[in-house]
Nucleic acid binder design. Structure first.
Lengths: 218, 218
DNA sequence: CCTACCGATCGGTAGG
DNA sequence: CCTACCGATCGGTAGG
């Protein structure tokens, strides 16, 4: 028989400093007309997922971080996984925009490459850039159907890099197979998430320079 | 008041095909005299952690994989975290042995480097090599005190690489700062865990060759 | 979006 | 090492 245990239930305490009728807006955005609640959730989730991992972050953490109660994020998202997917998608869309701009510019391959490396380092290590690190770190936590929904954007990102690296090869600046180069190169940069500490050692500009120098063997 | 809910309890079913008195040994090891139960747990945990992540693996999964009941791993380890630490430690000790042998050998720097790259690729991508991938992937899941217990081995591993890379620089084979080179290089190889599929594309020997070729710019 | 829950799972333990 | 649990947490939902 099912029984309801009161001691088992954790009644959420009434939110402090908050009127019943006029509910104060969460602090984050300055001009947020209703629609941005979803955006707030995504942005805050990105930060939490990056800091504590997907499994280490609870829906309650996310809710409270934007001033909601524990069940309310499910009004905006069908599941915790869909929040994760939204975080990754936002990161990819932003990243793609920048990479597309760089690749489309009429500069020599070497300059494009420099810009790509610098941009990718910013995307992965820059202050407040939590979206792509979450993608890199918690990709496995997504269900296959949500992975599929995102993988198209990921592929486009990779293809733009591939194109630039091929140009580098045509220009005689690298000799190895350009697909292997892409994988090793992006891997090296992506992995920097594990060791780079902002404010300690190299700046992002310096790291970018050294990275290009090393990979091009100059 | 605390109440005991019977419907809440999941009584584990009696293990099938198993006598009460003479408990059959788990399948894994051929010659396992008691002491190896702990080793069995570590080996099986490495595989499960690699496949499903630390958070995605339950102590019950581990127990059942070696033919124990859910609570029994805690006879061998104080916590799930300590199992994780044991996995990482075993991986590092094995890896260190190999790397130390290579670095101590009397071969030219370039040959040492080739051997290190090949050995590290094996450690990270090789069949049945689950320990170091777990270290790379779930390092953050360790509590700080357990991280401290292991970080010494990790540092020795890095120092041996650093030494070899410095020799490479002295020999004029690379130009960049050797610490940055070490970080980018190991990062590129470590990240291959994310994209390399055994049996598809390059073999480990081929990948090793291409990696050395690319990083040394030949 | 909140209230008030539920069902399930999970790490861990006492006692043998 | 098993039996038999507990305490806590967590994703998610119905109804307003």
């Amino acid at each position: 028989m099912k029984t309801t245990l009161d001691s088992q239930q954790h009644i959420e305490p009434a939110a402090p400093l908050r009127k019943r009728t006029v509910r104060s807006r969460p602090l984050a955005t300055v001009t947020d007309e209703d629609g941005n609640r979803r955006a707030d959730l995504v942005r805050v989730s990105a930060r939490l997922f990056r800091e504590k991992g997907f499994d280490g972050t609870t829906v309650r953490d996310i809710a409270h971080a934007v001033g909601m109660r524990s069940g309310s994020p499910f009004y905006h998202f069908k599941s915790k996984q869909e929040i994760l997917a939204a975080v990754m998608e936002e990161g990819l869309v932003a990243g793609l925009g920048e990479v597309e701009r760089i690749v489309a510019s009429s500069t020599p391959p070497l300059e494009k490459f420099r810009s790509l490396v610098r941009a990718h380092l910013e995307t992965v290590l820059g202050e407040g850039h939590d979206f792509i690190p979450v993608l890199l770190y918690d990709w496995h936590a997504l269900t296959p159907d949500l992975q599929e929904q995102i993988i198209g954007l990921k592929d486009r990102y990779d293809q733009l890099w591939q194109k630039t690296i091929s140009e580098l090869k045509d220009a005689g600046l690298i000799r190895s197979d350009s697909k292997v180069v892409r994988l090793l190169l992006l891997g090296a940069i992506n992995y920097s998430v594990q060791w780079y500490k902002p404010g300690k050692g190299l700046s992002l500009d310096e790291l970018s320079e050294q990275t290009v120098e090393f990979f091009l063997g100059t």
